[in-house]
Amino acid sequence: MDSYRMHPKLIEENRGSFFRVLFRNDQIPVEGFLWNIDPVSGTLFLLKDPSASSSIPSSHLEETEHRVYSIMSDAIRSFEKDDSVQPLSPEALLEWDHLLT
């Protein structure tokens, strides 16, 4: 997905899928599961879920906490879906929904 400003239905269909964000200033990329995209500002909300991290190669073995990344659209060079990573289960996504709302 080159353009991350998606129609709300497409955002909903991709919730829980694994995405990789590259920044315009060449900072270290961020990876996580899509929780939401603000349709007005384009701000991304990605989740780092430690229960799903066993299937994701990581250079940070100490990552065992739940994390939420809020990324402003101005900082994003690209936002790409990685279908090789298993999406979050509906139960895990529902747990995140309860935590974040």
Rank of each mutant, 00 (worst) to 15 (best):
S53R: 15
R15M: 13
R77Q: 15
Q27P: 00
S73W: 07
F19K: 00
P57T: 06
S53K: 14
S55R: 14
L99Y: 08
T101I: 05
V30E: 09
E12S: 13
E63A: 07
Y4I: 06
M1W: 06
L22P: 01
D2S: 05
R15F: 05
S84T: 15
P29K: 02
P29N: 09
P8V: 07
M72R: 09
F18P: 00
F19L: 04
F45G: 02
L47H: 07
S84P: 01
S78N: 11
E63R: 12
D74I: 06
P8H: 11
R67S: 10
I71R: 02
D82I: 10
S17R: 14
P87W: 06
D26S: 13
M1V: 14
H98R: 14
T64I: 13
I28H: 12
L34I: 10
Q27L: 10
S51L: 12
E80R: 13
W35R: 09
D97F: 01
N36Q: 12
S54T: 05
M72P: 01
V68N: 03
L61E: 07
T64V: 12
E95D: 06
D97E: 15
D97K: 14
V30L: 13
A52M: 15
D97A: 10
A52G: 08
G16H: 07
E13G: 02
L99M: 09
S84G: 09
D38Y: 04
R5W: 06
E95W: 09
A52C: 08
Y69P: 02
E13T: 12
E31H: 05
E62P: 03
N14M: 03
T64M: 08
S54Q: 03
K48F: 10
P29W: 01
D2A: 02
K81V: 09
S54W: 05
I76T: 04
I37D: 00
Y4Q: 08
E65Y: 15
F45I: 03
D97C: 05
K81N: 11
P50C: 02
V85H: 09
P57C: 01
E80S: 04
F19N: 00
F18W: 13
D82Q: 14
V85Q: 09
E62W: 14
R15E: 03
L34N: 10
L10C: 00
H98F: 07
E63C: 02
K48Y: 12
P50Y: 06
S17I: 00
V40P: 00
R24L: 09
L44E: 05
S58C: 06
E65P: 00
W96C: 10
S3L: 03
A75K: 13
E63L: 11
T64N: 10
P87K: 08
W35H: 13
H60K: 13
D74M: 06
S55H: 05
L61S: 09
V68H: 02
E31P: 00
S58M: 04
F45H: 12
